[in-house]
């Protein structure tokens, strides 16, 4: 369900456009320090939490059924291992849940006239800024879960390579679409 547009990369501009960048009036560069951040869609946080609970519960249930079933009698050693596994997976599930609750609240994005910034990380905070002029193409990625919750993941590809694809998860579909349109329009404005 990924929609996909290729952005024209040839400059055919005749008239030079004024670069609109408000803080220039103050003779000061716009700073990534003073960005107005927006959180991700609350429903995305909900989706992630629920999915984590659900996946952990499913694995636990399968293990539990394996332990209790009578069709294929398992040796006692295997039964012991399964008990430990259930304990470990349950613990990991709880820790992951806590981590997701904390980490997802630390994910922000900010949109400026000339670039998009995404910020994440609990202990290691990472702020990635993608200038819109350098974007090669835009993709909206929607998995089955995202489709069900009306969410989308915005992917911006630059020449920096696949490893440095700029990605904002958990956007409402209409927000993601309008952001994509903003990027595509921006491109045409600056190039014609």
């Amino acid at each position: 369900m990924a929609s996909h547009e290729t952005v024209k990369d040839e400059n055919t501009s005749q008239e030079a456009q004024e670069l609109s960048n408000k803080p220039m009036i103050n003779e000061q560069l716009p700073s990534i320090e003073h960005l107005i951040y927006q959180p991700l869609a609350p429903i995305y946080l909900k989706m992630r939490r629920r999915f984590n609970l659900f996946s952990t519960a499913t694995i636990l249930l399968i293990l539990f059924l394996c332990q209790k079933q009578q069709f294929f009698p398992l040796p006692s050693q295997a039964l012991n291992t399964i008990s430990y596994l259930i304990l470990a997976i349950g613990l990991i599930g709880i820790l992951r849940y806590l981590y997701i609750v904390i980490a997802d609240k630390k994910k922000y994005f900010a949109l400026r006239e000339q670039d998009i910034t995404y910020r994440c990380g609990v202990i290691f905070q990472k702020t990635v800024t993608q200038p819109i002029l350098r974007i090669q193409h835009v993709e909206l990625k929607r998995g089955p879960l995202e489709r069900k919750f009306g969410l989308a993941c915005l992917q911006l590809f630059s020449a920096g390579g696949a490893a440095h694809t700029f990605e904002i998860p958990g956007l409402l579909l209409e927000d993601a679409e309008s952001m994509r349109q903003f990027i595509l329009d921006h491109k045409t404005i600056s190039n014609t």
Partner: peptide
């Protein structure tokens, strides 16, 4: 020619 800028800071660095 920069395509993207990443700013990283951990608690300890901060």
């Amino acid at each position: 020619k920069t395509q993207q800028v990443q700013y990283k800071q951990s608690w300890f660095l901060k």
